[in-house]
Write a protein that binds this DNA or RNA. Structure first.
Lengths: 350, 350
DNA sequence: TTGTCGGATGCATTCGCATGCAGTTGACGC
DNA sequence: GCGTCAACTGCATGCGAATGCATCCGACAA
């Protein structure tokens, strides 16, 4: 049964040998016809191509990879697809890879699964490069990849001591920008909603935000959001506004949390931005839509994708062997979810 | 230079032969240790595993695939990632594939690129299955895949005559459901915003919607939206409401178009649902958020993903050779973007 | 005419692993 | 003590294509 199936497949599957036999040439010639740089006459190449098309022959990329040691596959690791931020990142990356003849192999670790666990699986596929978003790897794993000469890029995360490429928005600067902006609008009771504990992106945004506020002597309430989800933002916003001293501005560490927060507040009778200003971070398309019109720090998505691919060695520049960190500044999008408080009344009540 | 690089790699890359030499056994033994069903003593297996771990050996999936003819890769074709609908679909599929040891190879045709063009590329990767969303393939391509015994499933699309598996929400029924619902709310001037011309999903929804309305003698305005984008919905909504006879309900063929429409109307002073009811189709998470609170037909995402994988042969059931079409009913989510019109006044003016 | 050279092609090997088949070993029954 | 059998292991080969090397051929210069 199994053997007969295999036999049948062998008969059906068209290989380079088949084409060669039909044309009365060697298998090498077929191979050369499909290799741009190979030495072969134009006439022979067209003959091969014609016959190949007739027989339905397509080179087997798997077999080719075995020799060339290139799979033309880049692995991308994302924590989830439901956050539009990752959808945008994936979109940007894929759109750049495909024109270069590269395909995207997707890995979505299940919650609680460490990236370190899935990296071995991923390396087994002999991918030409790995892009890891919003997570980090152990230095042991980084070394394992380096040993195999598989380039790895952390996207949206960087670890100072780690010997690994990294591309990230400058989160500290982004936090500072937002603080500066909110201070300029005369907010005096800002709050920050953090994401997962230990997520450096969130911590950096927080530290930039808080330190800039402190420069002006402004205190900041820190609310632990939990994870980067709509629901977490929803809950955090309500907790904040039910305090005896509610904030006049809430800066969420992530757009999707801000969306949850805005929906929670509006559903509970708060008017945004009259009662409280709301700001986010990421700059996903949805943040610009009228329904939210969210002030946020927009990631330089294109630049980040370009930089990531360049560090992977897909750019025009020479491959940099030494681990490089690229910090790129985001752009503050001043939208309708925030408004200036008049200096004399620091709190507006509805 | 290039040769020395290769030589270095060969030295560095750990193969089964290396492990075998260190242990003083044959390469077959290494292979067997990594094959669950192979005949090998438990003691030897642990010895191999230990040494493999020490040397950092990982089986090369590419080489294995050459023999086993299984890559454990499923290709998924999506038109774009920016529509949350596809993000959800991709999420559901990936979450089911990974536990089965399967990885997802992503293909996003550039606008204007036919699926038929990229299928050959995709087949070169010797994927174990192909899932194509919201597009169809020529019957010639379907035959080419069948010949290679690569199962293909169309998701969210089906073509009656085509010899190919298909899983789709019952769009005609969905259209009828929505018509029934809006009629029950006493709407008398409904409009339908279509998507791309020739997209069967949109046409089916339209025909179901229109035919059910006609059953009650209700006319329907058809507005061509263009593509399935936020902007297309935005523009279409404005065109409709600027007519001399504006509708009292707008049914968009896609949630993302409805979002655009709602934002357009709200930005122009319309109150939803007081001035006009809005409905969508797909049931993406965002539709349930307070900002839109959109009445829509929710796709049975889980069931569709299950069905697709089953037809690919990843289910428990026997593989069905004959092309099967699974039509699954969606669920109408009755939300705040629609409201009942009192029978006596069929139009409300703001 | 002969030597040389470059382009085109074939041959043989290789990539890393899986697997059919044969060979080895030990346990067990008679 | 010997045959039988099962469990395990090694050998050799094959998967499909890329590529170094040798070969062949025609063109061209000497």
């Amino acid at each position: 049964m199994d053997e007969s199936t295999r036999a049948k497949r062998q008969r059906q599957r068209v290989t380079a040998d088949e084409v060669a036999r039909v044309l009365g040439v060697s298998q090498s010639t077929i191979s050369r016809a499909f290799t741009a740089t190979a030495s072969i006459s134009e006439e022979m190449r067209t003959r091969v191509m014609t016959t190949a098309a007739e027989l339905g022959y397509q080179p087997n990329v798997i077999a080719r990879s075995l020799m060339t040691r290139r799979t033309n596959i880049v692995a991308i690791v994302l924590p989830n697809l439901t956050d539009p931020f990752y959808a945008v990142v994936l979109d940007e990356l894929t759109q750049r890879l495909q024109p270069r003849g590269c395909q995207t192999l997707l890995f979505v670790p299940t919650p609680g699964q460490e990236v370190d666990e899935i990296l071995p699986t991923l390396l087994q596929y002999q991918v030409d490069g790995i892009i890891i978003t919003s997570a980090t790897v152990s230095s042991a794993m980084a070394r394992a990849c380096a040993k195999r000469e598989t380039p790895v890029v952390l996207l949206n995360r960087y670890v100072p001591g780690l010997e690994i490429h990294a591309v990230s928005c400058d989160n500290v600067a982004g936090g500072r920008q937002m603080a500066e902006f909110l201070l300029g609008q005369h907010h005096r009771r800002p709050a920050f909603v953090a994401g997962q504990l230990g997520a450096s992106t969130s911590m950096d945004r927080q530290s930039g935000f808080v330190s800039r506020l402190q420069d002006d002597g402004v205190e900041c309430v820190i609310e632990q959001g939990g994870d980067h989800t709509y629901q977490a933002g929803f809950d955090a916003a309500l907790r904040l506004m039910r305090r005896s001293d509610p904030p006049d501005a809430i800066f969420f560490t992530s757009d999707i949390m801000a969306f949850g927060g805005m929906d929670a507040l509006r559903s509970n009778g708060f008017i945004i931005p009259d009662h409280v200003s709301i700001a986010g971070f990421n700059g996903v398309p949805l943040a610009g839509w009228a329904a939210y019109d969210l002030t946020t720090i927009r990631h330089p998505f294109s630049q980040m994708a370009d930089a990531a691919l360049e560090l992977l060695g897909f750019g025009d520049a020479e491959v940099t062997q030494s681990p490089t960190t690229r910090l790129i500044h985001g752009t503050l999008m001043d939208r309708g979810s925030t408004m200036s408080r008049s200096p004399e009344r620091t709190r507006v009540r509805g």
